[in-house]
């Protein structure tokens, strides 16, 4: 997996305890084309507090551009932004 750190448009759901789960996202490529990824399976969730900034990390699996891939998503709590961290 390589570090990408791309901003995403994300649909996620939150349960009554505030636990969030990514469902599907949309990512703009450098050539302005768009990749849509759905049916995300979360395999692991972690939290980091580097530099005092809380981020939730999701290790996920899904089909990206016709291929089964493992990737990491990051959710920055302070800014409510989603990132494709590694793929």
């Amino acid at each position: 997996m390589k570090i990408r750190m791309k901003r995403l448009k994300m649909i996620f759901w939150a349960d009554e305890n505030g636990r969030i789960t990514p469902i599907r996202f949309l990512m703009k490529q450098d050539d302005a084309s768009v990749i849509k990824v759905g049916s995300i399976r979360v395999m692991e969730r972690k939290e980091e507090k580097l530099a005092g900034n809380r981020m939730l990390i999701f290790v996920c699996q899904s089909v990206v551009a016709g291929q089964q891939k493992v990737f990491e998503l990051k959710y920055e709590i302070a800014t409510c932004r989603w990132f494709l961290y590694k793929m």
Partner: peptide, 13 residues
């Protein structure tokens, strides 16, 4: 150090 960690967290290589 603060800056370095912040950058690494945001994908700096």
């Amino acid at each position: 150090s603060f800056e370095a960690v912040h950058r690494l967290q945001h994908g700096a290589t």
